[in-house]
Write a protein that binds this DNA or RNA. Sequence first.
DNA 1: ATCGGGACCTGCTTGC
DNA 2: TGCAAGCAGGTCCCGA
Length: 269
Amino acid sequence: MPELPEVETTRRGISPHITGQLIEQVIVRDRRLRWPVPVGLEQRITGQKIHGVSRRAKYLLLHLDDCELIVHLGMSGNLRFLPDSTAAATHDHVDWVFATGTLRLNDPRRFGCVLLTKHAATHRLIAKLGPEPLDSGFTTEHLQAACQGRKVAIKQLLMNAHVVVGIGNIYASEALFRAGINPRRAAGNISRERLHALVAAVRAVLEESIEQGGTTLRDFVGGDGRPGYFRIALKVYERAAEPCERCGAPIRRIVQGQRATYYCVECQR
DNA sequence: ATCGGGACCTGCTTGC
DNA sequence: TGCAAGCAGGTCCCGA
C-alpha cells in the first residue's frame, strides 16, 4: 500500500496523539505478519513512554524508554489512532492502548511487520539503506554513482532501497514521467543532466504528494483515518490508454520485474 | 556484484 | 450465479 508519502502521512497523523503518552496495554490479536510479532512484546513495552515517532524509508520507528519498535505497513497495512474505543475487525493485528485512545495496526495481506530492537539505525533491515530522497544526501552525484555501469532499467533502480529509499511503484512511474525518461532505459545509459532532472522530479512528486496526504488508490488511510488526495495528480499511474496530458499519446502499461509500469512513449525517451 | 524470479498473503475485479 | 484467473501501494532471499 504505502510508499514514502503515505508512511509520512501516517507518521504525522499518529505522532501528536501518542508522543509523550504511556503505553497502558498492548494487545496482539494475530502475530502473523511478514515476521511474527515477537512473543513477549506486550510485557516488554507496557508501561513505557512513547518519546517520538520517526520514519526511515518506509519504516515507522516508535522510540520508547529503552528500545525502539520498527513498524512496516507492507502493501496493505494502516496504522490509525482511535480516540474512542472501537471493536476490533478482521486483520486488526496489534493495539497499543493509551489513556487518550488506541493506536491500531490493520494489515490484511500481512506483508507488514512489528519488530522490537535496541537501536533501529543498526538493525539489519535499516542499516544498509540508501539516502532519504528528501534529504541532502540524495544528490545527482549519488544517483550517477549508483547508475554507473548498471544495466538494470532505471525504474527498477529507483525502486531499489539500497540506492534511494521510499520510492515505490506509483512514484517511480510518476517521477520518470516528469523527468521525461523512458522507464526501460538502462540506468548506466542516462546523462548526468537527465539524472539531475530525475532527482528534482523525485523530490517534487514526493513533496507534492505529502502535501496532499498521500495517494489513496484503493484503501489507504492516514493516521487519522482519512484518505490521501494525490491520486488526481497522478499523470500516468493506472492511466493505461488514456491520453498523455502533455502530448495526447495514449499512456502505455508494461511490466517490469513483475510490476506494472506506466509511461508515455512520446514524452519519455 | 548484479540480475531475475519466487516467495510471502488477502481481497477485489474481470471474464468465461 | 459460480469459479478461476489476474491484479494490487513491498521487499527479502535465493540461485544463476
